[in-house]
Design a protein around this nucleic acid. Structure first.
Lengths: 188, 188
DNA sequence: CGCGCGATTGAGTAATTTCAAATCTAGTGG
DNA sequence: CCACTAGATTTGAAATTACTCAATCGCGCG
């Protein structure tokens, strides 16, 4: 468990054993079961989640009852409602488990403390956020410039391992089309 | 000029006069004229731009010749192709001026140096990137969950000052609809 | 076997695009 | 002050794309 987090962090910065032990002490290991809700829409967000094992999604239920999936996260990905987490507002999204999950969670207080006391960790989070920004920018471009079919292929190409674990209904929701439309596309 | 940048940074962190002078020495003041191209699609990206005055857009020209606007930036906003800037790859976008512009530019080398030497600045950029991430996440949600009309109103509500300075063609491109469709919407 | 869930298919409707033409507007030069 | 032009915006009409609602299919599991 520890090793996974350590390797993940050390892809970006180097830590001594002591430093890593200190970093680790700011995280809490938490397990969740499939279908378990980790963040409730309209509730405050306590944690940022680093996924060791499992699969989650972050989605918003619109007023008409439809679910719009904003993010998936699997092994070695982070997930939370970053806005609510950072600004202490209520979550716009519900985050739940598509598979049983094991996570390291960190509170905002601990993240802030860690960044203040170990500037390498601020660098780490900065780089991670930058990568997330870049990924979102790509997604925006895809959404405004491509037809549903190309969006599907684009996703498949970028995250083939993820797609295999997802029901098509959810892929459709993530792509911003109805499940019927996705089903009618020629996916070859 | 200096004061604008200083106030912008000091919204997030505190700097002594000496520190700010040091920070400032990593930036270069650059002026651009309306229609001038600041970053060419498929070229490397030298700078991240902080806009003191003016208005720019970042857009991708697709293979069919259509322009898809990914970002606008006006006073006190940052703009670049963050992926190309950080990873040294070629820009996916063309960034150009919709109005005459005055900017402070910073190279990746200087940004990295600044972050290493003054950890407060790493914090500053981290917070800025986080805010950008949050804004993009909102945009993604809007794109997958709303009709064109609601997307327009959403944008108008969030950035009324920006909309007033933009031709409708560009707003349409930003929203991911054709200019004809935007023109036909009932915008009241 | 039969239930439940996900995926597909059909039919009608709505939203959006495309291409073309018309209209409007701001700036320029006479 | 007017005429002219270039660019932006709007409008029209047909074609495409996607959505909704309903029905059906397929499959794994108790």
């Amino acid at each position: 468990m520890k090793e996974i987090l350590r390797e993940h962090i050390e892809e970006i910065i180097q830590l001594t054993d002591d430093e890593f032990a200190y970093v680790l002490s700011h995280f809490t290991l938490k397990n969740f079961k499939k279908h378990q809700i980790v963040v409730h829409q309209d509730d405050p967000v306590k944690y940022n989640f680093f996924i060791l094992k499992g699969l989650m999604k972050s989605a918003r239920i619109a007023s008409d009852g439809k679910e719009h999936i904003v993010q998936f996260a699997m092994e070695n990905w982070w997930i939370t409602d970053l806005e609510a987490f950072h600004y202490g507002t209520n979550s716009k999204f519900t985050i739940d488990c598509l598979e049983d999950a094991t996570t390291y969670t960190i509170t905002l207080e601990n993240k802030t403390k860690l960044c203040r006391e170990l500037s390498k960790m601020e660098h780490f989070f900065h780089i991670k956020t930058t990568a997330g920004y870049i990924a979102l920018q790509k997604r925006v471009l895809c959404l405004i410039s491509s037809k549903a079919q190309d969006r599907y292929h684009n996703l498949l190409e970028q995250y083939p391992g993820l797609i295999r674990r997802l029901p098509k209904t959810m892929i459709a929701s993530f792509l911003g089309v109805s499940r019927e439309t996705l089903s009618r596309l020629d996916l070859n």
